[in-house]
Amino acid sequence: MYARAQTWWIILKICLEERLVYRGDFALGTLMRFLPIVTQIFLWTAVFASAGSVSIAGYSLEDIIAYYLLTMLTRAFSSMPGLASGIARQVRDGEIKKFLIQPIDLMSYLLLSRIAHKLVYYLVAAGPFALVYYICRSYFPGWPAPEVFAAFLLSLVLAFMLGFFLEASMGMIAFWFLEVTSLLFVYMLFTFFFSGHMFPLDMLPDFWKGVVDFLPFKFLAYFPAAVFLGKIEGDALVQGLMIQAGWVLFFIVSCRYLMRAGFNRYSGFGG
């Protein structure tokens, strides 16, 4: 047990150092990522001015801007750039062999390196995020109650896990189809629309709202943001967190299963 913990610690340390190499580029990139928010603010200001109403689908103008800002944060937890495509590449060029030989579990390794990646990201991105949130503070309704905030933090952690295991499962598909780039692109489009990254999901008509409720994607962006803004309260909040945890479990199991099945199929290409 101790030896294993030590291995993990070393993996984590190496990944941390690897990520810190390009920190300058990183911070600038993070700040630039907020630029689309500027156009969103103008667009929604124009929409509210033309609509002549103070609320759209239960959201005020301030709520919507705050919602977009919060989804940036939730996506910082749930998005996993390069995870699925990385697995697919390793399957294709045969690099994945090393996990079959070495006594390191593929999933644990990926999870640790991802945690390291995210830790560095938060460290570097904290500055830009704090700056932008401070500038836009007037859009926020203020700090939520402590128990709501705790639920928000919990849903963020769950969003990270859901994002990781969902995307890892997608990557495992590469064991069956070697070229999955386009499949991943479609998946990305899907998550962008149905996770609520593009707009608050409450705006959808009833039928589509029903569809979205059956999918895991809304927990990647919409759910934590809506919790913070107090759009989901009481029983619905508890229920939501439980469903989110359920999806996490489902994808932990599915990605384990896919990995086993994949290793059995795997025929070791490349050198």
Partner: peptide, 18 residues
């Protein structure tokens, strides 16, 4: 998807900036 987004927005407003 973009089109879907704007169709959605126009459910709530008759126009955007005229």
């Amino acid at each position: 998807m973009n089109l879907g987004f704007y169709t959605l927005v126009y459910r709530f407003t008759p126009s955007i900036a005229d």
